[in-house]
Amino acid sequence: MADRGRDPEAVERDIERTRAELARNIDELADRLNPKHVAQRGTERLKEEAGIVAQAMGSLVRPAEGEDGEPGRLDQRVVLAGVGAAVALTALVLWRRGRRRRR
């Protein structure tokens, strides 16, 4: 049964408040599902994972000691090649995972 004691203006305010809340929710969902924003989030996640892989690679690659007992210098080309390979592998895995989900 309807609440007959409610003020029609109060009911109207409730309806407007509910409408505004619904509009905000729809806008938020549209923003989350926007392909551009989805791609940006994927790119950010890929960058984060690449950074983690780069740190892991850096901790694995230790420079050899020189004749004086001091640590030697890393060959940056080798490190960059390893990081590039890790990033490429991560990108491939994420790309394949995305393709499977779309099917």
Rank of each mutant, 00 (worst) to 15 (best):
A56E: 13
G58E: 10
V87A: 08
D75G: 06
E28H: 11
V79T: 06
P63V: 04
V78P: 01
R77G: 15
G66T: 10
A85Q: 13
A88V: 03
Q40P: 04
R73N: 15
R32K: 08
E48K: 15
A81K: 12
I52H: 15
A64D: 10
E48S: 14
E49L: 07
R32A: 10
H37S: 11
L74W: 00
A50H: 02
G42D: 00
V53D: 09
T43H: 09
Q55W: 13
G42F: 00
V87G: 03
I52Y: 10
P63H: 04
G84N: 01
R32H: 02
Q40R: 14
A64P: 04
N34L: 02
A50Y: 02
G72F: 04
K36W: 09
G58M: 07
A85Y: 09
T90M: 06
L46K: 00
P71L: 07
K47C: 08
A81M: 11
P63D: 02
A54Q: 03
V61G: 09
L74H: 07
I26R: 07
N34Q: 06
A30M: 06
A56R: 11
L74N: 06
G42Y: 02
L29S: 08
V53L: 14
E70I: 09
L80W: 12
I52R: 14
N34E: 00
L89E: 13
L74E: 04
S59F: 09
V83W: 00
A30R: 10
E49Q: 10
V78A: 12
I52P: 03
G58R: 11
R41V: 03
G51L: 03
R45K: 12
S59G: 12
S59H: 13
A85T: 12
E48C: 10
K36N: 13
D27W: 02
R32I: 02
A85S: 15
V87Q: 04
G42T: 06
I52V: 15
A81C: 13
G82L: 00
G51Q: 05
R62C: 10
M57L: 13
G84W: 01
G69Q: 01
H37A: 12
I26H: 06
E49F: 01
E65Y: 12
R77E: 12
A50I: 05
E49I: 01
P35E: 03
A91C: 01
P35Y: 05
A50E: 00
E28M: 05
E70S: 13
